[in-house]
Design a binder for these strands. Sequence first.
DNA 1: ACTTAACCGAGACGGTACGTCGAGTCTTTCT
DNA 2: AGAAAGACTCGACGTACCGTCTCGGTTAAGT
Lengths: 211, 211, 211, 211
Amino acid sequence: VNAVPPDPRRRNTRSYDAIMDATIGLLEEVGYQRLSVEAVAARAGVGKTTVYRWWPTKVRLAAEALAVRVEIGPVPSSGDLRSDVRALVEATVYAFTKSLLARALPDMATDLDDDEYARTRLVDWLGPARSGNVRLLFGAAGHSPSVGPIDAGLLLDLICGTVLYRHILGRAASDTMVEQLTALIVDGRPPRAASTGNRDGFGDIADLTAT
Amino acid sequence: VNAVPPDPRRRNTRSYDAIMDATIGLLEEVGYQRLSVEAVAARAGVGKTTVYRWWPTKVRLAAEALAVRVEIGPVPSSGDLRSDVRALVEATVYAFTKSLLARALPDMATDLDDDEYARTRLVDWLGPARSGNVRLLFGAAGHSPSVGPIDAGLLLDLICGTVLYRHILGRAASDTMVEQLTALIVDGRPPRAASTGNRDGFGDIADLTAT
Amino acid sequence: VNAVPPDPRRRNTRSYDAIMDATIGLLEEVGYQRLSVEAVAARAGVGKTTVYRWWPTKVRLAAEALAVRVEIGPVPSSGDLRSDVRALVEATVYAFTKSLLARALPDMATDLDDDEYARTRLVDWLGPARSGNVRLLFGAAGHSPSVGPIDAGLLLDLICGTVLYRHILGRAASDTMVEQLTALIVDGRPPRAASTGNRDGFGDIADLTAT
Amino acid sequence: VNAVPPDPRRRNTRSYDAIMDATIGLLEEVGYQRLSVEAVAARAGVGKTTVYRWWPTKVRLAAEALAVRVEIGPVPSSGDLRSDVRALVEATVYAFTKSLLARALPDMATDLDDDEYARTRLVDWLGPARSGNVRLLFGAAGHSPSVGPIDAGLLLDLICGTVLYRHILGRAASDTMVEQLTALIVDGRPPRAASTGNRDGFGDIADLTAT
DNA sequence: ACTTAACCGAGACGGTACGTCGAGTCTTTCT
DNA sequence: AGAAAGACTCGACGTACCGTCTCGGTTAAGT
């Protein structure tokens, strides 16, 4: 917690890059939880002081590294709404179950709680892709029978949230789920139950009748 | 990493209760991340060994404490579907933004990743409430124009996920959002945009036109 | 610190032997310092309680194990005083640098300090060998020009102490030293300096002139 | 077990002094056996890490503390050989039965076994006093009828060892013993038996006739 | 021969200390 | 003058044993 923040103009570019690279590398290898400032400094060939000078907390370091080193963008629009929405859902599944962000975000949650700045940094980074995707959903929903503008942002969060939540609880995303969400958004149609049950009652009508 | 797990019959009831109480207390006070086995043992008036004997990892300790000390249940059914679904969404908002679970779950995510057992413990605990709520949603969706059984489990995860995701990113849940999700589930109607914008484009059509 | 000492008649012979064997075995393998009651009990296939019941402290356990499991005796007398004394010194060197006693005794020193009973146990055990050796020295010294009885006990302790002390400080015992001590005792002749020096000035005249 | 030992020049003087003082203090109060690194760090107001950084084992910590905080020196020479030797023996009795070294050395023996460095540290520390005393004994023996240089180092170890050994076995040093050792060294005369026996046969002819 | 009290194995318990790791701060050295 | 290097205090980690304490289940002494 530096009372007097350092002068950004005097920042050493080489150190900055090395630290960002080291952070991304360690995030990939060990994840956010097991990421240590100590290891970042060591791998970057930099003193711990230098890291702490610019990033007072671990969460800010990780947030910035993700923002400057990981490319994310909106899914491209093909013109066909259903395909586009399906692609968006699939991209989300990837982003929240396989990508670097997927592994890092849940772990960062608590630290983000305490750090408004880092949260903003992340949200700003997600912004452009989000805007593009929101626009896509807006187009999709525009074709639905509903009248007036829709809250595409909520739809987007709905997709992300659903995928993330299932991931946390250990439920793998299935093709069925992708279709269900796509149909819900494009057609306003509630998800149909799969024809076969699975052992734990997640995503299946089976547990309704069984219980 | 006990090769031979100890015999549960020889467990000391007093210690067990004290440890569970201490864990819940500390989860409430400092959260999962800052929870330490050391502090749990100290508060419970118990040797660290005793904690480690029965719960080899922090995440199992927390998972069990939540399961045995925190009551959760399905929302009661009033007969009116819209009211019931709204109540369910509101309960979810509470559970994932204000309750003890809310504060703990995001932090536990990574550890849960590595610990199938703890994840199962949690899911089993959530099970009964989940079943009740799934049944409620099944009834709700049964009234929608769609034909055949619906995947109520997905709808439930959708609600939980959306609320949780917004919470992680620092978006407070609003009454508007509650209504939007209720309408989506009961009526199959996509969320309407709110009439006024907010500065970051979450939950508002504004950012679509502005960007 | 048993208020009511247990009834020796009911002692389980099998356990007793197993404990003694385990203690000796562990003394040989890891030494007194790293000997743990836990390990003794485990190796003996015996409850910790059983060990603590009969030997309230580690030092008593070790002292008894040495006494009942390690044979020591006086060196045999050949009739030739010089040979006998030399044999005694050599036996002492062995006892205090290579035998089990050698490894255990220095470590037990502190604990013996606090436990009069264990010390007595050890001394009683050493007694017979000691008596025989004292008698041998008495004969030896009787041939020296001094008149009257000599304090053979002191001579014996002198031999033991010198060897032990050098062992503690890491000085290996040499043949020269054996000869020197023999000559001192048999002839009352002070030790001659060796003709060559060694690097640390122990046992050599060199450091006198060099310093 | 530091692969790369830290740079001594960067050592914090205040911490160093505090640790040495704390170590000496605790050695005096509880002895080496019950000395814990934890307690040293706490008393010194220092992190445990700092202690472990510079002294990887307890025995090195104790060895250095003795070396830098406890003054030892050769006994002063008065010119009269018999007095000097008697003073030397008395000083040895003090050193090995009452001084801090006395209480610590036997306990340290095992650990010294495993740690060549610590042993060297101790021997180096004892060195100057040793040299002085060796020189004194050299003078003493020079007056004996023996021809040529004597091994004064052995004589010195003989004194130390005898006193230490009797101390370990719980035999208090007596004035008689001091005289006996003095006579042995100065006159080459074997120890005379005391006129009265004691109960355990140490230092007395009694056990010879009794056994 | 039959009680019955004590010993037995097993191992959980509250503790102390271990030696390690990393966080975040502070100091020294070098360029 | 500022960055690297890294020593510092602090706190938690997970482990090993300590010595005490229940547990049932033998086992052997003394009716």
